[in-house]
Simulated scan of single mutants.
Amino acid sequence: MQQPFFKKHRGVIIAFLIILLWFTSLAVLLQLQVNWASLITYLFVLLQTHLYTGLFITAHDAMHGVVSGNKKLNKTIGVITAGLFAYNSFYRLLPRHHAHHHHVATDLDPDYHGGNFLAWYYSFLKQYITWWQILLMAITFNVLKFFFPVENVVLFWMIPAIVATFQLFYYGTYLPHRGEHEPDNKHKSRTQSKNHLWAFVSCYFFGYHYEHHDKPYVPWWQLYKVKT
Rank of each mutant, 00 (worst) to 15 (best):
residue 1 M to K: 03
residue 5 F to A: 05
residue 8 K to F: 01
residue 9 H to M: 01
residue 11 G to R: 06
residue 11 G to I: 02
residue 17 L to Y: 05
residue 27 A to D: 04
residue 30 L to H: 01
residue 32 L to Q: 06
residue 33 Q to C: 00
residue 33 Q to N: 11
residue 34 V to L: 05
residue 34 V to P: 01
residue 35 N to I: 04
residue 39 L to P: 04
residue 46 L to W: 06
residue 47 L to E: 05
residue 47 L to T: 12
residue 49 T to I: 01
residue 52 Y to E: 14
residue 52 Y to H: 14
residue 52 Y to W: 11
residue 52 Y to D: 15
residue 56 F to D: 02
residue 56 F to N: 05
residue 57 I to K: 02
residue 63 M to Q: 14
residue 69 G to L: 01
residue 71 K to T: 11
residue 71 K to N: 04
residue 73 L to W: 13
residue 80 I to H: 07
residue 84 L to D: 13
residue 88 N to E: 01
residue 88 N to T: 04
residue 90 F to Q: 00
residue 90 F to C: 04
residue 91 Y to V: 03
residue 94 L to K: 15
residue 94 L to Y: 15
residue 100 H to Y: 03
residue 100 H to V: 10
residue 102 H to Q: 14
residue 103 H to D: 05
residue 107 D to P: 00
residue 109 D to V: 07
residue 109 D to F: 08
residue 110 P to V: 10
residue 116 N to D: 15
residue 121 Y to K: 00
residue 128 Y to F: 14
residue 128 Y to S: 08
residue 130 T to Q: 06
residue 134 I to M: 11
residue 140 T to H: 12
residue 143 V to N: 02
residue 144 L to Y: 09
residue 145 K to A: 01
residue 150 V to Y: 03
residue 151 E to H: 08
residue 151 E to K: 10
residue 159 I to A: 13
residue 164 A to S: 14
residue 165 T to Q: 12
residue 166 F to V: 07
residue 166 F to Q: 01
residue 169 F to V: 03
residue 171 Y to D: 04
residue 175 L to I: 15
residue 175 L to P: 08
residue 176 P to S: 11
residue 185 N to V: 09
residue 188 K to R: 15
residue 189 S to H: 11
residue 189 S to T: 15
residue 190 R to M: 06
residue 190 R to A: 15
residue 194 K to M: 13
residue 199 A to M: 04
residue 204 Y to P: 09
residue 208 Y to C: 10
residue 211 E to A: 07
residue 225 K to M: 11
residue 225 K to S: 13
